[in-house]
């Protein structure tokens, strides 16, 4: 654990585009021309802004109907929650679990996880960095799976268009949900994770020694 020399300490940094290791004094990456910076401090604010936008959009995404299904003249407005409840009611538990994961668990986990992560950096809260980083890797990997519900809606809408007999349309929540995915993905992508390892150095070591006691 002693060996924690960072690139910034010896004046080198990695190019964010082509991942070439360069001397910071070069100014621009000799291979791809990207501007070189040891840290992107503005990324923290940008990430917060995107995350808050996503959190606000999560409300219409869950409150408004995401699909409008007409079946034999009866019109049903399904939100994300009632859609899943409907699937459970029809004994389609595996599908219900997949849709629940993609449409509820993943977006919420992404927003709450990123909020914890950003709070830890902004307010220097002593949460072990290893835990935060593992969480971040998981968020990065599962984030895109929220797209599943939108794909399912597009296939359903294209197939089920038999007028009064049976018809499916997307609802306003679909747009909000698409934007939630966009903004959460951007919030995770824009953040310079190296900031976490700078800012929590002292606190985290303190919390680790406390655990050892």
């Amino acid at each position: 654990m002693k060996n924690s020399l960072q690139g910034r300490d010896i004046g080198i940094c990695q190019c964010p585009v082509c991942q070439m290791t360069n001397d910071v004094s070069l100014g621009a990456c000799p291979r791809c021309g990207t501007q070189l910076k040891c840290r992107n401090y503005a990324s923290l604010q940008q990430s917060w802004a995107l995350l808050i936008t996503a959190a606000v959009l999560l409300i219409p995404a869950n409150v408004f109907p995401i699909t409008i299904v007409t079946s034999q003249g009866k019109i049903a407005y399904d939100t994300i929650f009632t859609g899943i409840a409907h699937l459970i009611h029809l004994d389609m538990l595996p599908i219900a679990i997949i849709v629940f994961t993609a449409s509820i668990a993943v977006p919420w986990a992404k927003i709450i996880g990123l909020a914890i992560y950003l709070t830890a950096i902004s307010f220097r809260i002593p949460i072990p960095k290893r835990v935060l980083m593992t969480g971040y890797h998981i968020i990065e990997w599962i984030g895109r799976w929220s797209m599943l519900d939108l794909f399912v809606i597009s296939i359903t809408v294209a197939l089920v268009n038999m007028g009064q007999l049976m018809d499916a349309k997307p609802g306003p929540a679909a747009t909000a949900f698409a934007l939630v995915i966009l903004f959460t993905q951007l919030a995770a992508k824009v953040l310079d994770t190296r900031l976490l390892w700078d800012r929590l150095e002292a606190q985290d070591d303190a919390s680790r020694t406390a655990e050892n006691r």
Partner: peptide
């Protein structure tokens, strides 16, 4: 022979 971690800047 050295590489930097893109997530935490470790040498």
């Amino acid at each position: 022979d050295i590489v930097l971690c893109r997530a935490c800047d470790l040498v």
